[in-house]
């Protein structure tokens, strides 16, 4: 099936200072700037946020626990011409919780980065991994906090029951 959508970008969000980045979903966009702006509008209209990251999905290595059982990644995976670079490794503990940033390391390939992340014997149970090359990540600027995230803080959800309309319509009908 042909995909007529624009390229997909994964969106990661830092709720507050000191918290790790969490995967919140994805947006379609023609370029990283549009991806960042779309991410802001889709994911930060109300909830708290300090920082947003976007990365093109096509550059991210995703592996489920099952896939890892069938093919164990090797630290030595190094495609021709690959250069050592920084990778962010995200782990999803189970199907209810999101992918959360677990480590940041230098490796010759995404596979190799994942192999390193899996190495410690104490690695907690993980349903899914995502490895993002830092080079393809676009982050919101700390100077943008004011225009990007602050306006949302003063906009609480209003429940339908906050409006007197329903009761009033009844009164009008009874007149």
């Amino acid at each position: 099936m042909t995909d007529t959508q624009w390229p997909r970008f994964e969106v990661f969000l830092i709720e507050e200072e000191g918290k790790p980045a969490e995967h919140v979903g994805s947006v379609h966009a023609t370029d990283p700037e549009m991806a960042l702006l779309n991410a802001r509008d889709v994911f930060v209209r109300r909830p708290q946020c300090r920082e947003l990251w976007v990365a093109p999905s096509a550059h991210i290595l995703f592996r489920t626990a099952q896939e890892l059982e069938n093919a164990v990644p090797s630290r030595d995976t190094q495609p021709a011409g690959a250069k050592e670079q920084q990778y962010l490794v995200f782990a999803k503990p189970n199907h209810r919780e999101p992918l959360v940033l677990s480590s940041c390391l230098s490796a010759p390939s995404a596979e190799s980065a994942l192999a390193s992340a899996l190495e410690p014997a104490s690695t907690p149970e993980t349903a899914m991994w995502a490895v993002v090359p830092e080079a393809v990540l676009t982050r919101s600027d700390s100077e943008e906090i004011e225009s990007f995230f602050q306006p949302a803080e003063n906009k609480p959800y209003k429940m339908h029951s906050d409006f007197p309309t329903g009761r009033q319509m009844k009164e009008i009908r009874q007149k």
């Binding site: 959508q5 624009w6 947006v27 379609h28 966009a29 702006l37 779309n38 509008d41 889709v42 209209r45």
Partner: peptide
């Protein structure tokens, strides 16, 4: 034109 822009 696209869902994301609709929201934006």
């Amino acid at each position: 034109p696209i869902l994301e822009e609709d929201i934006a």
